[in-house]
Structures are given as structure tokens and as C-alpha cells.
Design a protein around this nucleic acid. Structure first.
Length: 837
RNA sequence: GCGCGGUUAGCUCAGUUGGCUAGAGCACCUGCCUUACAAGCAGGGGGUCGCUGGUUCGAGUCCAGCACCGCGCACCA
């Protein structure tokens, strides 16, 4: 039975009431028995569980939910899981701060370790298993808070399918994919110059870099040339002078061409430095000739590789200047002792200190030309780091993306992008890749590589013959599991084995979210029904990371694009049009907004952000959304408050006119939602609904009360109910709580499982004689004029006018005449005449 | 430097293949306790559609150039 009609309906309490009911009834439960054609599958972004969700999350996740709810009402079985991205650096950093601990991978596991939050003093060192336990503990708490928020916001997720990126299934998928790609030669293990964050002491990927403007200075250095003129270069990084292995100028640069093939000396150290020509050198920059250091930036790597230069590394993984021994390769110098004395003064220092010292040494040496001139320049940072990126040679796992860029771009063209122009960002990124995708991180809370290495009799690690875990044993943790063919006691012993201690980058796991969510590889039946997925919703700032990497893995592992559609949401901006900052986002908590305005109202605001468009945070829109929700309550109560005239036929021309208009609204809103234009659809429905309330409803009110007998009353009532039903259903994706409430007053079952209205359905209610959509427009115009006259006379609208005369053209007059009784009653006129004119 | 998006009312934004007097909401002003809703309803004022030129019977819409804002990519000796 439907519920009793409340006397004074309210929004308060609807969220809790219906969230509980939906959970109890399994309203959003995914029915896996459905066929692939019936299923609509969503590759939900697993939010990073490292603190709290902010308003922007509610914004973009609502967009996805709008689509999910629409598709569900269209009859699709919606596969809509939630995932939590709990592995990775953000969690580690949060755990470090929250518990004041650091991970020592060589420490012993303490089974009953209790760590309290907070605590002053130096961080406590804990073993990797203990550290992971703390990560799991904290993310577990966060995940519960996130779920509560999502339920409150009305996401129609099937919570029984929730996954985490550190969970066992995710680890299995990630390790399996790794082994597959390794087997196909798509993943390689290489010692190579790698982007390196000295703060976190880990390799990072190109996709995780960002530019930041910082202060620096140009230093002009003179390189003595025993065989000719000295050479001057400009550099912002004089502390790398000891790592200088060459100089390069453009091959066509006449100023430097005579030097090619000569060897100059580095100042202070007196190291021989050959001069080369290379087209990457820009005659316009600095003095037109550059020093090549191993390694100052990506250009250095290119020159080093293409010119076959030696590596003279001086930056240690922790960002200090490493010790070096001059007089032995590759640290050669004319006077090794002098070089060593100079070097010892910078060794052990951090970059910044070494730079200062180096300038002093250069000044004493007389090879600093003029004074350093301060500049502001953009420098690459790891996006989560706080010191500039260094390039450090280390052994890492790489996915060979460089050789397949054209194929990725082709995959991108198989996807429908919403909005379409977002594909250009994907193309730009793929074309601009400069190196393979480094997926190994020297961190702890992540998916380990399922790899060990044999140790030679001398204890040396044999990286060339990795021992791989068997597929059936996955997931494995090589730091605790023993490789096939070995005993536990052989760990780290000569002739034994050692574990690969790295973990995968978080994107290496989340790039497999469709596979993880879809149950691959353990549940091939489910996977076949949901993959490739219908929709990937996500924000535009992670096109280069999450979107790109998912395309890569799907292409390599399944030879397909991972989804048919990618819906890219914009950002939330402050009212002053700046990107909403973390601090502000924390002041305005999502839960606070949901409580203050109601979830439907916040969703209404979110729905006004079109795909791809950055949207201002606007509480005014939430107030409007709330107003709309209240209106839906009241209008529903009014229409349903009168006894139903069961099976009544729509007979009055003006009623048919309303249905004619409704039919076009349904058709348009449906088409727009099918095309992911939810904002336009909402506006369409909303406009109709206000027209329905302010004009149609007012027009037929008296007739519905029976002013002209039963037949006309029945026609009005039937029309009101058809219109209300359609509006309630079309609002359901946007305002799920209030829509469900008003639906429950007179219908069986959830509105969210009700059929989306169709033009055919409306036409059927109208019967054999279609209405004229213009008629109601004209009637509304007349009504407006009457109201205006009364308003300008400062009269109450219910004041009775003696006579109203409407002048209209012939065809219009005929239409208006058919509404004249309703108009007379609604306009409160004793007489209404329509005259041609 | 290459590319993408934007510029319409005080604010936030619609405006489809070129076509009636350029729209909505908010804000503002005026009026109305009207039996669904005063957290409501009705009415009103408000725009040189960024600039310049072009195509056209007709341009917010199409073309060219420019300016400014935002973003992506690259460069950053």
C-alpha cells in the first residue's frame, strides 16, 4: 500500500528514511543475471581515502549518480560499485602524521604493537607489516565515514560490491596484469635515470609532475679552455658542476662550432669536458652553450643518451650531495687532490647548501663571472612533494608506453567523450610523453611486485634472472613469501634469494579499476557482462594519470578500449572563480551542506554543472534546489489530496494541450540524458514543472473542484495525475529523496525502479485526439495580462473583474475560446469575451 | 611556443541546423495573507551579446583577425 498523504509535508528526515529503506529493500542491488545489453556498467572513480571528502567530490559523484539513476529507470541493470583508493602515498603520509611513525622496512614485525595517534618528538620507527596495519586501520575508519556521506548524498551505489585498491582481489589483478605484461615484453626492469622525489625518496612518473614558480638565479661560469678561448655558460644549478660531463651547442651555431671536438676544463674541479653539437641546444638561451650534468633535467638525459656520455652522479636518493672519489672513473680531473678538496666541501650537504658553497668556491676560483642574477622560474616538482624533482639513476620497473602511443590515441577515438573536446587533452598528453611509465615506488603501502632475485655465491643480486611468482599463488608479498624452489632460510643469504622490495605506483593499481570491480579474473562470467564498461566518469585533472593508464592496461591486457563513454567533470571554483582550495573546502564540509540544505538541494546545485565545465560553489543554487524540492512536495500533496477519479479520461482541449506539451518535454529530456546532458534535461523538466504549477494548475483548479460538473473535473484530475507522475519520475535522478517521498504517497514500489516516462505513454493518456500545445501558451498569456492589470491596480489577485476582453487573431481566438471557462474562473472575471483582432 | 575552452543583464548561466521584440534563475523594485505552498504567489525594471572587419535579405549564432580570462601540453642553460 502507498503511504498516507501527510498534512504538512516536510523535507527534514527524508534522507535517513529513504536511505534506510533503499538499503533494506536492495533497491540498487545489481542483478548479475542480466545480459550484457541490459547492463549499464560504471567504472566508478575510487576516491583517495586520505582524510575527508570535500564539496567537489559531492559535485562530481552526483553527476555519475544522475546518469546511473536515469539508466536504471530506462530499464538498464546498472552496475555501480564503489571503490576506495587506499593504497599509496597519500595514505602513508596521513599515517605518518596521524600516528607520528615512519616505516623501517628492515625492522622486525611486532605482532601486538599498539600505536596511539599523535605524540611529540621524533617519529617512532615501525616495521613494514606494522606500518601497513596502521594504514589499513586508518583507511578503514575513513572508508566508513566516506560511505556514510555517499549514502546521505543519495548515491545509488550497490554497496555489496565495494572494493579497495589494497584489497586482495585488487592485488591479485595488479600482480597478474604485471606478470602478463612482463611476459609479453611490455614491462621492463631497467637501471636508468629516473624522476626522483628526494622528500619521499622514491621514483615518480612524468604524469605526477607539476610546475611551480620558485626563485633561483642565473650563474655565469667560465670554463677554461687549454686549447683556445675560454667558454662561458649560464646555469641555475651550479651545485651540479661536479657532475658536468659535456657542453653542448647547436650544430649550426658559428660561435661554438670551432669548439666541437675540443675538451675544456670545468672550473674548480678541472675535469675534462668535451664540447658537442646537438640540435636540442638552443642558441637563444643563456650564452647559447649549456653544460650537461648527470642529471639536472630531462634535456640532460637526452644529451647523455644520444651523445653516449658517462654518468657522473652526485645527488644521493635523499637529496644530498653524495661522496665521490676524484681520480677514479668517472670522476677524472687534472688535479684530483684539488678536486677532492673542493668536492669534500659540498659532499653531504643538501642541494641548497651545496649551491651556496659552490658559489663561494667559484668566486674564490675566479671563474664566477659577475654576480648571480636572481630570477623566478618554473621548476618541476612531484605533485605531492615539496622539493624540486631530481633525476637519479636507479633500477625501476617501466611499462613500455613510448612504443604504443599511436595505438593509445586510436583507442581514445573509440571512446565517446563528454564533452568531446576533452579528448584533445588525452591526445596532447600521449603525444607529449617523454619516457616510459615508471610504475615502481620505493614505498611501503602498495601492491608489491611478485618478484624475487637470486643471490649469487658472492651475495650479489642477479637482476637479470628474476624469479616470478606463479599465477595461482597471487597475491604474494615477496618480503614474507618464499619464491618457488627456495626455503625461507635462504632469504638474503649468498646462493639464496632476495625480495623485490618496491611497491607499485597507485595508478598502476587503479589503472585496473574496471578489472578489479568487474571481478577479473576469478569471476569471468561477471567480467564478461560488465566489461568493457559503459561509462568512466572522472575529473579532467586526472586524464593524464587515471584515464590514460586505464587505456594502456586495457589495450595491453584485453585489446579493447576500457569504456564506451568518458564523462569528464569540471572543478568546483570559489565564488571568486579560483579553484576551491583545500582550506576552504574544509571549512564548508559536504555533510554540513547536506544537513543545511538537504541532499536533494545540494544535488540540484551539482546537476547545474555541465560535463567538463568548472562550476562556482554557489549556495544560492542550493536554496533554489531546496525550493524546488519543497514545491514538489506541496504540488504533489495538492494534486493527490483530492479523491482520485479512477480511470478518468482526458477530454478537455486545454488538458490535452498540457499533455501535448508534456510529450515534447519527455522526449527532449530523455534525449538529453541519453547524451549525458543532464543539466539541460533538468532545466527542461524544471521549466515544465513550474509552468505546470503556476499556470496549468491554477487554470484548472476550480474545474477540478467541480465547478463545471463531474466530466470536466475528471479530465482535469486525470491530466494532473499524468503530469505529476511524469514530473516525479523525471525529477527522480536529480532529487531522489523527495521524488521517492511523493511517489510513495500514491504508487507502489520505488520511483527509482519505475519506468522512465515516454512520449508514447503520454500520448496514450491523451487518447485519440491529440492536443494543441499552443492553446495552453495562449491561455497562460491571457492569464498573465489579467494578473498584470490587477497587479498594476494594486488589487488582490482574487478581486473579481467585471469583464475581460481578449483580442486575438482568428486561429488564436478559436483556441482561447475553448479555454474561456477555465480562464474566467482562474482570472476571477465575471465575464470573458474573445474578440477577433 | 602548440593546443583546448570561455567572454551574453549587477551575479551564475541557457541560447539547437543563421530567422519574430535576445532568455532563465538569483539579486533589485512594486503589489498580494489567494482554501498546495508567505521558506509562498503575482507583476516590473535591467543587456552596444569582448573588439574590429567580412559573408548574408538577415549574425549572439558562420568566417578572419585581435584582446582578455581559464586550462592542458611543451620549454624553462
Amino acid at each position: 500500500m502507498s503511504e498516507a498523504l501527510p498534512r504538512k509535508p516536510k523535507l527534514e528526515g527524508l534522507e535517513q528514511k529513504w536511505a534506510e529503506r533503499w538499503e533494506a529493500d536492495g533497491t540498487y542491488r545489481f542483478d548479475r543475471a542480466s545480459s550484457r545489453e541490459e547492463i549499464y556498467s560504471i567504472d566508478t572513480p575510487p576516491p583517495t581515502v586520505s582524510g575527508s571528502l570535500h564539496v567537489g567530490h559531492v559535485f562530481s559523484y552526483t553527476h555519475t549518480d544522475l546518469i546511473a539513476r536515469f539508466q536504471r529507470m530506462r530499464g538498464r541493470e546498472v552496475f555501480y560499485p564503489m571503490g576506495w583508493d587506499d593504497n599509496g602515498l597519500p595514505t602513508e603520509r596521513r599515517v605518518q602524521n596521524y600516528f607520528n611513525v615512519r616505516c623501517d622496512p628492515h625492522a622486525q614485525y611486532e605482532p601486538d604493537l599498539e600505536v596511539e595517534p599523535g605524540g611529540d618528538g621524533p617519529p617512532r620507527m615501525v616495521s613494514r607489516p606494522n606500518f601497513v596495519e596502521l594504514c589499513l586501520k586508518l583507511t578503514g575508519e575513513d572508508e566508513q565515514a566516506f560511505e556514510d556521506l555517499w549514502r546521505r548524498a543519495g548515491l545509488s551505489v550497490d554497496w555489496s560490491m565495494t572494493y579497495t585498491t589494497i584489497g586482495e582481489p585488487a592485488q591479485r589483478v595488479a600482480q597478474l596484469s604485471f606478470l602478463d605484461e612482463l611476459g609479453k615484453g611490455l614491462i621492463v626492469h631497467q637501471a636508468a635515470p629516473t624522476l626522483w622525489d628526494v622528500g619521499f625518496r622514491t621514483a615518480v612518473a612524468q604524469a605526477e609532475l607539476e610546475d611551480r614558480e620558485i626563485g633561483g638565479a642565473f650563474h655565469r661560469l667560465r670554463f677554461p679552455n687549454p686549447g683556445g678561448d675560454d667558454v662561458e655558460i649560464e646555469t641555475t644549478r651550479p651545485e651540479l658542476l661536479a657532475a658536468c660531463v659535456a657542453m653542448v651547442a647547436h650544430p649550426d651555431d658559428d660561435r661554438y662550432r670551432p669548439l666541437f671536438g675540443q675538451t675544456v676544463r670545468s672550473p674548480v674541479f678541472g675535469a675534462p669536458v668535451p664540447v658537442h653539437g646537438h640540435p636540442l641546444a638552443d642558441p637563444e638561451k643563456g650564452t647559447g652553450i649549456a653544460m650537461v650534468c648527470t642529471f639536472g633535467d630531462i634535456n640532460d638525459v637526452t644529451w647523455w643518451r644520444e651523445l653516449g656520455l658517462p654518468v657522473r652522479p652526485i645527488v644521493a636518493p635523499d637529496g644530498t650531495i653524495a661522496p665521490a672519489e676524484w681520480g677514479s672513473e668517472p670522476f677524472t680531473a687534472d688535479d684530483p687532490e684539488r678536486a677532492q678538496r673542493a668536492y669534500d666541501q659540498i659532499a653531504g650537504q643538501r642541494i641548497e647548501g651545496a649551491r651556496k658553497k659552490m658559489v663561494e668556491l667559484l668566486r674564490e676560483d675566479g671563474t664566477l663571472v659577475g654576480e648571480p642574477s636572481p630570477i623566478k622560474h618554473a621548476v618541476k616538482f612531484f605533485e605531492k612533494g615539496d622539493r624540486p624533482i631530481e633525476i637519479v639513476t636507479s633500477r625501476q620497473w617501466f611499462v613500455r608506453t613510448m612504443d604504443y602511443r599511436d595505438e593509445f590515441i586510436a583507442r581514445g577515438r573509440e571512446i565517446d567523450w563528454h564533452p568531446p573536446y576533452m579528448r584533445a587533452r588525452f591526445d596532447d598528453w600521449v603525444r607529449g610523453l617523454t619516457g616510459n611509465w615508471c610504475i615502481s615506488r620505493q614505498r611501503f603501502f602498495g601492491v608489491p611486485f611478485p618478484v624475487w632475485y637470486p643471490l649469487g655465491a658472492d651475495g650479489e643480486t642477479d637482476f637479470e634472472s628474476p624469479i616470478l611468482a606463479g599465477r595461482e599463488s597471487l597475491p604474494v608479498d615477496p618480503s614474507t613469501d618464499v619464491p618457488p624452489g627456495y626455503e625461507a632460510g635462504q632469504r638474503d643469504q649468498p646462493g639464496g634469494f632476495t625480495a623485490d622490495m618496491d611497491v607499485m605506483d597507485t595508478w598502476a593499481t587503479s589503472s585496473l579499476s574496471p578489472q578489479i570491480a568487474g571481478g577479473h579474473p576469478d569471476d569471468p562470467d561477471l567480467f564478461a557482462r560488465v566489461f568493457p564498461m559503459d561509462l568512466r566518469p572522472q575529473a579532467h585533472d586526472i586524464i593524464r594519470t587515471w584515464l590514460f593508464s586505464t587505456v594502456v592496461r586495457s589495450h595491453f591486457d584485453h585489446d579493447t578500449a576500457p569504456w564506451r563513454n568518458a564523462a569528464i567533470s569540471g572543478w568546483i571554483l570559489d565564488p571568486d572563480r579560483k579553484k576551491m582550495s583545500k582550506s576552504k573546502g574544509n571549512v564548508v564540509t559536504p555533510m554540513g551542506l547536506l544537513e543545511q540544505y538537504g541532499s536533494d538541494a545540494v544535488r540540484y546545485w551539482a546537476a547545474n554543472g555541465r560535463p567538463g565545465a568548472d562550476t562556482a560553489f554557489d549556495e544560492g543554487q542550493m536554496r533554489i534546489g531546496r525550493k524546488l524540492a519543497v514545491k514538489l512536495l506541496n504540488a504533489s500533496r495538492f494534486v493527490l489530496g483530492m479523491p482520485a477519479t479512477a480511470g478518468g479520461a482526458v477530454t478537455e482541449p486545454v488538458d490535452l494541450s498540457l499533455l501535448a506539451r508534456l510529450e515534447t518535454v519527455v522526449a527532449a529530456a530523455t534525449a538529453q540524458l541519453e547524451n549525458y546532458e543532464y543539466t539541460a534535461a533538468l532545466e527542461r523538466v524544471e521549466t515544465f514543472f513550474w509552468f505546470f504549477c503556476d499556470n496549468y494548475l491554477e487554470l484548472v483548479k476550480d474545474r477540478r473542484y467541480g465547478s463545471r460538473g463531474d466530466g470536466p473535473a475528471v479530465s482535469a484530475d486525470a491530466t494532473l495525475r499524468v503530469g505529476l507522475s511524469a514530473c516525479q519520475r523525471m525529477f527522480a535522478p536529480f532529487l531522489p529523496f523527495v521524488a521517492e517521498e511523493v511517489w510513495s504517497w500514491w504508487q507502489e514500489g520505488s520511483v527509482h525502479r519505475a519506468a522512465w516516462p515516454t512520449p508514447e505513454e503520454i500520448r496514450e493518456a491523451a487518447g485519440p485526439r491529440p492536443g494543441d500545445a499552443d492553446m495552453l501558451q495562449l491561455a497562460a498569456a491571457v492569464l498573465r495580462e489579467v494578473r498584470k492589470a490587477k497587479s498594476e491596480a494594486n488589487l488582490p489577485l482574487r478581486t473579481s473583474a467585471r469583464s475581460v476582453e481578449v483580442a486575438a487573431s482568428e486561429p488564436h481566438a478559436a483556441l482561447i475560446a475553448q479555454v474561456s471557462d477555465d480562464l474566467r474562473e482562474a482570472g476571477v472575471a465575471e465575464e470573458l469575451r474573445v474578440v477577433p483582432g
